[in-house]
């Protein structure tokens, strides 16, 4: 943990060396972020609800997903950009060091410009909680925190899985975008609005539904069972295959040389 923090602060320092460029990119992120919300906002000027979910409920759902995704973009950038390590052959350097590999990959890169997205996600989250009349109790607060945590975990898992794939293909794959960007796009809506097959796939194969659908139902008071409230815990199980896939990948790894 100490090493990781040290690496983070080094990346931050190096990014801040170019102060103007950092600031400009930080601002431009705000614009880009707005374009994500635009779809939802403009469609809700024409429609009043989507299968029973109102504007602020959808925004709540989306901000939780955005939070997890951008959180990983900042703090797990090394995994997101793993294909670079493999292509350039830099991964070999990590292998000879006497420290945990995954930790080293995490330390290898970070992107503090994306902090602006995390902040914006939090703002939207607070705004939508403010507009929604939720009857708060201790369990609901727990559910909300679990959702945020699960959102970070699931994208970490997906990034890791995509990274493990690089061991075989030696290149980043466009297909991974289906699961990261595509998944993010889809999960901005409560998953229940989609057709059955889709819902099943994103419940059991990639468990987005446990991040922002089943717990959301509990949070909004549409379902009363505690099972719904604590369902984000299932996402933690999802990490097991992801991490083991990564280590299987390392065993198969042959360097590209150079």
């Amino acid at each position: 943990m100490k090493i990781y923090l040290k690496a983070l602060s080094m990346h931050l320092k190096s990014e801040l060396e170019y102060r103007v460029s950092f600031l400009l990119s930080f601002l431009s992120q705000i614009f880009i972020f707005f374009s994500y919300y635009f779809v939802i906002l403009s469609l809700f000027t024409k429609f009043s609800h989507i299968r029973g979910f109102t504007l602020w409920e959808v925004l709540l759902c989306f901000s939780i997903i955005q939070f997890g995704f951008s959180f990983n973009e900042v703090f797990a950038r090394g995994i997101d950009r793993f294909d670079r390590l493999i292509i350039k052959g830099d991964f070999d350097i990590l292998l000879v060091r006497p420290k945990n590999i995954l930790l080293q990959v995490l330390c290898s890169d970070s992107d503090f410009i994306k902090v602006s997205r995390v902040i914006q996600a939090v703002i939207v989250l607070i705004l939508s909680l403010f507009h929604l009349k939720i009857e708060w109790n201790i369990f609901k607060i727990m559910t909300l925190l679990l959702m945020l945590l699960a959102s970070c975990i699931i994208f970490f898992g997906i990034f890791l899985m995509a990274a493990s794939y690089c061991f075989y293909t030696i290149q980043g794959l466009e297909v991974r975008n289906v699961f990261t960007d595509g998944g993010k796009y889809m999960a901005q809506y409560p998953i229940g609005i989609f057709q059955k097959g889709f819902v099943l796939f994103f419940t059991f194969i990639i468990p987005y539904a446990f991040v922002n659908y089943y717990p959301l139902l509990y949070l909004l008071g549409k379902k009363d069972s505690f099972l719904y409230g604590f369902s984000p815990l299932i996402v933690f199980l999802y990490l097991i295959p992801c991490i083991s896939m990564f280590y299987v990948g390392i065993k198969r790894y042959t360097s590209v040389g150079s």
Partner: peptide, 14 residues
């Protein structure tokens, strides 16, 4: 995904 989103929106019967 887009198609399903719009189908779900159109169900609101506006």
């Amino acid at each position: 995904v887009y198609v399903m989103v719009y189908i779900a929106f159109y169900e609101s019967g506006e």
